[in-house]
Design a binder for these strands. Structure first.
Lengths: 263, 263
DNA sequence: GCAAAAGTGTTGTAGCTACACCCATGG
DNA sequence: CCATGGGTGTAGCTACAACACTTTTGC
């Protein structure tokens, strides 16, 4: 790592943080598994570190005067351009050896403007895991000062991530599965208008198994949570599928009960 | 609060922590909602503070070299006498105003043996909530140095707790409800041998609604997770009910699928 | 004998599975 | 005109709710 490079990155960090007077809480971080759904595949937002070439989940730290939820929202707003993201914490990762000294980062924190001292990054971090559901097409992935890429990666194409981030991802996915019946997962991952196939493919991807096309349709319609629009999807090489949107009122009510079935 | 009293309590704390060289992590605490089941009622373990008379959930702090799970186990071992308690984290409570200066506690921490400095308790705490399931009769409730009572209280008799502990309790209960179908909740709350009524009352208490005695029995037996013993409960003023125990192998397998039904 | 709870049986129905069949569209 | 996926229908089965009825015990 060249001295020039260090200088450049240090100034980048300072630029971004200069006006901030709040300090971060020691020892506490957050990591986000941001899910999106596109071309019938579940995708996750990941960053590629400039210095080490490692892949990481978007994450950040918590200011002394904000809740973790607010911190996660703040972090994701920068990373995606979106406000008011659907966000749920799902687990705390606190193995004392989960984090380690990261020279690429801690080298930068010499000025101590926002961090208590230079060794701040050497400390052990307890990380709160969040999963986020976003509408794929609305996201403008933005790398941070330490990364050169921020992009969507298919769930089945995710390789080795930094630290315990693969564990975090897997746990997020497991949570998503368990919460499929009582969280508005379809609503948050799909665009406003969607076809029945798209909704079903989303369920199939999350559950990791195929569902009967016809039974799925009848079952989901029986909940009365969808509104059939007078539109069809154009430009497909077969019968044009009808478009639906969520009936948000009924959807919320149905989720309170849980979408009972076994899928 | 008399000066004598302060001295006494300070020495108590020092006694307990003298041999410990590890420091606690700043800003991070944990709180446990310990559930027990006795005389067909769900109970929670609470402490009564000597100084302020407030009721609190058992909790503690995290050493620099332990995970939160290990810390929670350590705390609960002292409070209950039990090892290897069934324990699940369910939420992080991080509202920046959730904790406040607690004079009764922070006055004690003047020596800085185990805490970084005297203002340690004044800091904001982010608390990881755990729920624990224990077998009521096995527990020996032990107050800590700051409390004079540690006892079981019926869920419906719990009054105002300190800080946001009522919120923590409610969230724990909600989690318990949601996880009833895929966590070994019956197994951990009941004694080894139990009657069908006891198991059903447990479900009824957690779910907050009555279940049909006969349908419950047939449904739960259909899962093949119980073993009917050749014993009956004696000394009841009616037909002696048969005793059951869990078939742990089958129970685990069934929980992986989820005890499907709607209860 | 009677009250109270245990234990077993029955019946109708809702909802699911597993299909068959036809429709619309692009190439 | 055919391949592809959309849309609707139906028969059989399972699981469940809502009951009735019998059994066993203490008092």
């Amino acid at each position: 790592m060249s001295s020039n490079f260090r200088k450049q990155m240090t100034s980048l960090i300072l630029m971004e943080t200069k006006e901030e007077t709040c300090k971060y809480l020691d020892h506490i971080s957050l990591d986000c598994v941001v899910f999106g759904f596109h071309s019938n595949q579940l995708k996750v937002l990941v960053l590629h570190m400039k210095t080490t070439g490692e892949w990481v989940l978007p994450g950040g730290f918590v200011y002394e005067d904000e809740s973790i939820e607010v911190a996660a929202n703040r972090v994701l707003k920068v990373r995606t351009g979106l406000d008011e993201i659907f966000l749920r914490q799902f687990n705390v990762f606190s193995d004392p050896h989960r984090s380690r000294r990261n020279p690429a980062v801690s080298d930068l924190i010499l000025s101590g403007q926002t961090y208590p001292d230079a060794s701040w990054f050497d400390k052990r971090f307890i990380s709160v895991g969040f999963y986020a559901l976003v509408e794929f097409s609305q996201v403008q992935p933005q790398p941070d000062e330490l990364s050169d890429i921020c992009e969507w990666v298919n769930l089945d194409k995710i390789g080795k991530l930094i630290l315990d981030h693969n564990l975090i991802l897997n746990k997020a996915l497991e949570t998503l599965r368990l919460q499929l019946t009582f969280q508005p997962i379809g609503y948050n991952l799909l665009p406003e208008k969607f076809t029945m196939s798209e909704l079903r493919k989303l369920y199939e991807t999350i559950l990791g198994k195929e569902l009967d096309r016809r039974n799925f349709q009848r079952k989901i319609l029986a909940y009365d949570i969808l509104i059939r629009l007078d539109e069809v999807r154009q430009g497909v090489a077969h019968k044009a599928p009808g478009l639906y949107k969520f009936n948000l009122d009924n959807y919320q009510k149905a989720l309170e009960e849980g979408l009972s079935g076994r899928w």
